[in-house]
Amino acid sequence: MERTLKVYVYKEGQKPIFHQALLKGIYASEGWFMKLMESNRRFVVRDPRKAHMFYMPFSSRFLEFALYVPNSHNRRNLKQYLKDYVNLIAAKHPFWNRTGGADHFLAACHDWAPYETRHAMERCIRALCNADLRGGFWLGKDVSLPETYVRSSRNPLRDLGGKPADQRPILAFFAGNMHGAMKSTALEWLNQSSMSVFR
């Protein structure tokens, strides 16, 4: 029995969409995941035949930066770009084809990532910051990746954590649109509790 998980990181794909990590801001979770995975010497193997899993190192944020036409409301080209990438991987390596991508994984934090990866990468394990079931998150297969706002790429842990719990006057904070069943359910629960809810 193997004692250490072995991961192969695909070399295919060009910057900025592949192999380039955004290490600051709200999408930094996917960037730090990529940076730490690609530099890992304990789990990452050079020979893909020795791997148990396969990492597809792309940035959903850089995919949007590079390919989305502002105000077009059309993301089909982003989805097609990832499909072309999967086809390249499948043509060059036998690993995708033997499982249909079920032993492949990715990390993506942009809100559009569930849509962009839903078809070409549907069998992959997706670590997504957007865990909205209606948006394409699959319970039992996908993993929720915490979205963490990183203010400094040189010191990513700076300003994380905050005050101890007994010194916090606010239990929870949410800003954004009310989309997704979980947000509506949480708001209903909060309205029925003795907590103050501000909109």
Rank of each mutant, 00 (worst) to 15 (best):
K163Q: 09
F173C: 11
A66L: 05
G31M: 12
I170M: 12
L67E: 11
R3A: 11
L139M: 12
A28C: 04
V9E: 03
V7N: 12
E2T: 12
T4K: 10
L82C: 10
T4D: 08
A113P: 07
H110A: 07
K163Y: 11
M178W: 13
L190G: 05
N77R: 15
V143A: 05
N130Y: 12
R126M: 07
S29T: 03
W189K: 13
L5D: 04
L157K: 13
A165Q: 05
G13D: 00
Y68G: 00
I89A: 06
F33T: 14
Y81H: 14
G162C: 04
M56Y: 13
H179G: 09
R118A: 15
K24C: 01
D166R: 12
T4W: 02
K50E: 12
H93M: 06
A108L: 07
R61T: 13
S72K: 06
V150P: 07
P48T: 03
V45M: 07
P48G: 01
C124Y: 09
C124H: 11
S184C: 05
R49S: 14
W112E: 13
D159I: 11
D132W: 01
C129E: 05
D47H: 12
S39V: 01
L23W: 04
S153V: 00
F95I: 05
P94R: 11
A108T: 12
K50G: 01
S184R: 09
F174D: 06
S72G: 04
D103T: 14
R151S: 05
H52M: 01
A131Q: 04
N155A: 03
M56K: 04
M195K: 07
A113E: 03
V44P: 02
K11P: 00
V86M: 03
A91S: 15
K141T: 12
T4P: 03
T117Q: 02
M34F: 06
V143D: 05
M182H: 14
I170N: 01
G101E: 11
R3P: 02
N40G: 02
D103Y: 08
L106N: 08
F198C: 11
A66H: 09
F58E: 04
S193A: 10
L88E: 15
E122F: 04
G31Q: 08
F33I: 09
Y149R: 01
L22T: 13
V197Q: 02
K6H: 10
L67C: 06
A21K: 05
E2I: 08
F62K: 14
L78W: 02
L82I: 14
P57C: 03
W138R: 15
N87E: 15
H19F: 03
P16Y: 06
K141L: 11
K24T: 09
A127I: 09
R49V: 07
A28T: 03
S153C: 02
Q20I: 00
R98L: 09
M34H: 08
A107I: 02
E30F: 06
S196V: 13
P70E: 06
R41F: 02
G25Y: 00
R41M: 04
P16R: 08
D47W: 10
Q20V: 01
H104Q: 08
Y8F: 15
V69R: 15
K92F: 06
P94F: 12
L23T: 10
V69K: 15
L128E: 09
L171D: 07
D111S: 13
G136C: 05
